[in-house]
């Protein structure tokens, strides 16, 4: 009895492993050649968002904020250029720096219900306290108002 059961088990296992029909192959998810660049781009946006948040809550000094923001933007531009280069290469065209489709963050924007205290002259963002540089657009708030 045991012998019969074990043989059936062994045969079943071997059959399961070895008989694969074409329709059993899982359709692979499409893999974009841009996947790693898109990830990188997303990471940089994420970093920028963090940076703005930290600046707004007052963890960062103005110079730190400005410098780091510039760095991140530079990196972002590099990645976008790399996307274009790869795209041109894939399309079999000579590498020209064609503009890339713009990334579209779909983050919702919170309704601004706070009484307005300080307004950025460049982009209109509002803050509860005085900042040297706008936490939204990064332009100088003082210079424009002066």
């Amino acid at each position: 009895m045991i012998i019969a059961i074990t043989s059936v088990l062994a045969i079943a296992i071997i059959a399961f492993i070895l008989t694969i029909r074409p329709r059993d192959l899982p359709a692979a998810e499409p893999e974009s050649p841009f996947a790693h660049l898109d990830d990188r781009k997303a990471a940089i946006y994420e970093n920028l968002r963090d940076l703005q948040f930290e600046y707004r809550v007052g963890k960062l000094s103005d110079t730190d904020y400005q410098n780091t923001k510039k760095d991140l933007q530079k990196e972002l531009a590099t990645v976008l250029a790399e996307v274009d280069r790869l795209k041109a290469q894939l399309a079999g065209k000579p590498a020209v720096a064609a503009p890339a489709p713009a990334p579209k963050p779909k983050a919702e924007r919170a309704a601004e219900t706070k009484p307005i205290v300080f307004v950025c002259p460049s982009c209109g963002a509002t803050f509860e306290k005085s900042l040297k540089f706008c936490g939204e657009c990064g332009k100088s708030m003082k210079a424009a108002s002066a």
């Binding site: 968002r49 713009a102 983050a107 919170a110 963002a125 939204e136 990064g138």
Partner: peptide
């Protein structure tokens, strides 16, 4: 970032950042 070819990105980046929260 002032490179003319990249300034387009820059504007886009600025606009996207304004939408971030």
């Amino acid at each position: 970032i002032d490179d003319p070819a990249l300034s387009k990105y820059k504007d886009q980046i600025e606009k996207d950042l304004a939408d971030l929260e």
